[in-house]
Design a protein around this nucleic acid. Structure first.
Lengths: 190, 190
DNA sequence: AACTTCATGTAACGAGTTACATGATTAT
DNA sequence: ATAATCATGTAACTCGTTACATGAAGTT
């Protein structure tokens, strides 16, 4: 999904500046399942303006750059709606955390414990962010918020149930053949 | 995380060809939370060989390209272990599905229903894939598999509980000001 | 007949991130 | 003092995907 579509979506809630749109991808309604940086948002907004999908109103400020407040045009609304009708790309969950834990038996125990603690901390912070967010003003927002909360809770529950088991996995030695086929080993703490 | 690290991880289980590594990112142990394509795996393997982190044995075949079987070297093991010790990047869950559903009130009901059905289908297929996969041969693999299963189940449960509510959301009209500030509306089905 | 699997590899293209550039104001 | 917030924007860079090229054997 192009950043332009994400911007259209952000503006479908309310007019906003590039800066505010970026915030929506941090704390706001999209924060938990989408990302976008200034380096992609600003050019996207410029492109959308050129295409007539959004319009821009400038508010002069002293001491800082003028505020450019973007809003959808009718053409923008229609285009956004038609983009929503295209089949969405499959969700992708990328987790280096799980990748590393796949090799738990090759890692020192305290690293495994540290990793799980950190993840648990992140998950709780994310949950907290959800609970502190504004009351959703549309059913879709409510659905997405509740979905997020449910998944975070579920993830926390799993980690808490399984952390002891995982942290007490036997450390295996790395065992592998050298160039000549002879067996060699390395311990995880070496 | 670089594809080279992913390849090192794949080879930490067993020697393999580029083709087989790709399979591991489809059905195999990493399939649910990582991706890699041939266009990145083959160059990565070449680079790893040049760096001496893996070695390559060629098996001649008739009728198809020779099989290049890659295996970690000692240097590769050590390098892999040290990469595992670097703090992993934060997980990222990208969901166009949730993005679209944020705007459920702007969508025709049957589209919302269709989206949820499709997602439920995907989720069940993924669960099924997990349950048909080989019995994990390391504790980390088992942990990751169980984590995946738990999250898929949790997601399915949430969608099933909430689908009726979501599909019966009132369709709102798109309401927005035109160039002159006058109120304009568009219905979702128009 | 047509499609999938096995098997490797390259090149062009796409798309976004990171880092940089600038700088006043407000909170700690 | 120091850091964070507000505010916009560009350019270089990373890095991976998609599509292409090749082609035999087995499956439906």
């Amino acid at each position: 999904m192009h950043v332009t579509t994400l911007c259209l979506g952000a503006l479908a809630f309310d007019e906003a500046t590039g800066y505010e749109i970026k915030k929506m991808f941090e704390d706001g309604p999209f924060g938990h399942f989408l990302e976008a940086s200034y380096g992609s948002i600003y050019p996207a907004l410029t492109k959308l303006t050129e295409e007539g999908l959004v319009q821009c109103r400038v508010e002069t400020q002293s001491g800082r750059p003028d505020k450019k407040i973007y809003a959808l045009t009718e053409k923008g609304w229609l285009e956004f709606r038609s983009r929503l009708q295209e089949p969405p790309a499959a969700d992708r969950y990328r987790s280096e955390f799980l990748f590393v834990l796949t090799f738990a038996h090759l890692l020192p125990r305290d690293q495994v414990a540290g990793l799980v603690d950190e993840k648990l901390g992140e998950l709780e912070a994310a949950l907290n962010l959800i609970d502190c967010s504004d009351e959703p003003d549309s059913p879709g927002k409510r659905f997405v918020r509740d979905y997020g909360r449910h998944m975070y809770q579920s993830s926390i529950a799993f980690l808490e149930e399984n952390r002891h088991w995982l942290e007490n996995v036997d450390s295996h030695e790395l065992s592998f053949p050298d160039q000549h086929g002879a067996e060699r080993t390395l311990s995880p703490n070496d």
